[in-house]
């Protein structure tokens, strides 16, 4: 388990380094996520090529899954410390509370509606064309 935790940390570190070195506007951890994803894809290819039937090529190594699911099962908790930062901005929030809350509420509703609707619409028209006959 420790080895997979190390792998996750190493991916983040590599991600941070790559982002800093190239100036790509991505957070280091997101670059790390992409890296871990590619490691999983490469591993799958290698397992298929080597013809190793001992392990299931498509599945995530069990211990990695345990570490990742453990970290993700309490993902919401990890946002609490940053959220408490609201106490440093009470003055500005008091002054602009109406436009800011309207912007957050209105824009979130619009964003969710536009994104979800487009996603459903495009997938339906793509599968309608290739699948044929699907209503």
């Amino acid at each position: 388990m420790l080895n997979y935790l190390t792998l996750i940390f190493a991916c983040q570190l590599a991600g941070e380094m790559a982002v800093t070195a190239t100036g790509v506007p991505l957070p280091g951890p997101v670059a790390g996520m992409v890296l871990l994803f590619f490691i999983l894809v490469v591993r799958q290819r290698l397992t298929v090529v080597s013809g190793n039937t001992e392990q299931d090529a498509d599945s995530v190594p069990e211990e990695l899954a345990r570490v990742a699911d453990g970290l993700l099962s309490h993902l919401s908790l990890l946002f609490v410390p940053a959220g408490v930062g609201i106490m440093a901005h009470f003055a500005l929030l008091k002054q602009d509370w109406l436009p800011l809350s309207a912007a957050i509420v209105g824009s979130s509703a619009l964003t969710i509606a536009v994104t979800a609707w487009l996603m459903v619409f495009i997938r339906r028209s793509v599968s309608g064309r290739s699948g044929g006959g699907q209503q």
């Binding site: 935790l5 983040q12 280091g28 899954a65 570490v67 990742a68 993902l75």
Partner: peptide
């Protein structure tokens, strides 16, 4: 706690891969 946000973000590769 805040620090773990980084590794947790990396771990999102797992559900994505699945």
């Amino acid at each position: 706690v805040h620090f773990l946000l980084g590794p947790a973000t990396v771990a999102l590769a797992v559900p994505l891969y699945r």
